[in-house]
């Protein structure tokens, strides 16, 4: 973005540093590289989403038999979405919602209490405890999932949504607790002390003074738990084996495997439906999250 005053004549640059390109050329190259890489990156990321949307709205026969980059008006249809009301799909969707909601509630609740405890109480080996929490991230879900299967089937949590909620909460928890711990540390203790002196109990103070101020952290934890639970495949596949109790991700896998015929149109329709909530969730809460952090910086 060169203005007339910034423009340098080639002769000037020559005297300055020999082979240096002129400002204008460097500027143009920089922008070319910038927008070029951005475009490439977007294409890689966005194309699968575009393909999913296109297929979801295309006649299911056409999806299999023909190929076209752009949707053609004759084949656009909403028929694929009828799958949402058919068979086990509604069950999957409801199960996913139940498990996700449960996970968010558990993660936010536990991380608030645990984060407060870690921020405000001194106890032995607190730092080690915090580091130990992070150890959970060293294992892949499949490594944790198989022992969990054995334990859950022993205590009767297999095929129970609460079982999956516990498993998903436990893998979301380390991050959420750390976030909440660090966030509560930024709230001045004198605010709580002031409430105690005014006569409020520790618990009441926690509710009235601490929790309302952690809203941005609550949103962040909820968002994180949402992403973990909504998109989980491994744990759901292992811990909810039955058709009635399982969630969308393993469910869609079963749709693909069903018989010899794969209805890509149906699958893309279900996929699209399940992609929309995270997008909305992330978009609106991200706005809120930023707003929350702005308030804190006063």
């Amino acid at each position: 973005m060169s203005t007339p005053t910034e423009t340098e004549t080639p002769s000037e640059t020559e005297t300055e540093g020999g082979t240096r390109l002129s400002y204008e050329t460097r500027d143009r190259l920089y922008h070319l590289a910038l927008y070029g890489s951005a475009a490439l990156f977007s294409a890689v990321i966005l194309f699968p989403i575009y393909w999913m949307v296109q297929n979801a709205f295309t006649d299911s026969q056409t999806v299999i038999t023909e190929f076209s980059w752009l949707p053609s008006p004759e084949t656009v249809t909403l028929d694929n979405f009828s799958v949402l009301a058919a068979g086990a799909v509604p069950r999957y969707v409801i199960n996913t919602i139940v498990v996700t909601a449960g996970t968010i509630v558990v993660v936010v609740g536990v991380s608030l209490v645990a984060g407060y405890g870690m921020a405000r109480f001194r106890f032995r080996y607190k730092e080690s405890f915090a580091q130990f929490l992070l150890l959970g991230y060293m294992f892949s879900p499949i490594v944790l999932g198989l022992p969990l299967y054995l334990i859950w089937s022993e205590i009767g949590l297999l095929n129970a949504q609460i079982g999956l909620v516990i498993a998903l909460s436990s893998i979301s928890m380390p991050f959420a607790v750390w976030l909440m711990w660090k966030y509560i540390q930024t709230i001045p203790e004198s605010m709580e002390e002031s409430a105690w002196i005014a006569g409020a109990s520790r618990w009441r103070t926690f509710w009235d003074v601490v929790v309302p101020q952690t809203k941005p952290a609550i949103v962040a934890c909820a968002l994180f738990a949402f992403a973990i639970a909504w998109n989980d495949f491994t744990f759901a596949q292992i811990l909810l084996p039955s058709q009635e109790s399982t969630t969308f991700a393993p469910g869609i896998m079963r749709l693909i495997d069903q018989g010899g015929y794969t209805s890509w149109g149906d699958i893309m329709a279900v996929s699209l439906l399940m992609t929309v909530p995270p997008l909305l969730f992330a978009y609106f809460l991200q706005e809120y999250l930023l707003k929350g952090f702005e308030v804190r910086t006063r």
Binding site: M191, S194, V209
Partner: peptide, 10 residues
């Protein structure tokens, strides 16, 4: 008690 950092609930 009046605190140095005022400690109003934001």
């Amino acid at each position: 008690l009046l605190f140095q950092d005022i400690a109003l609930y934001p």
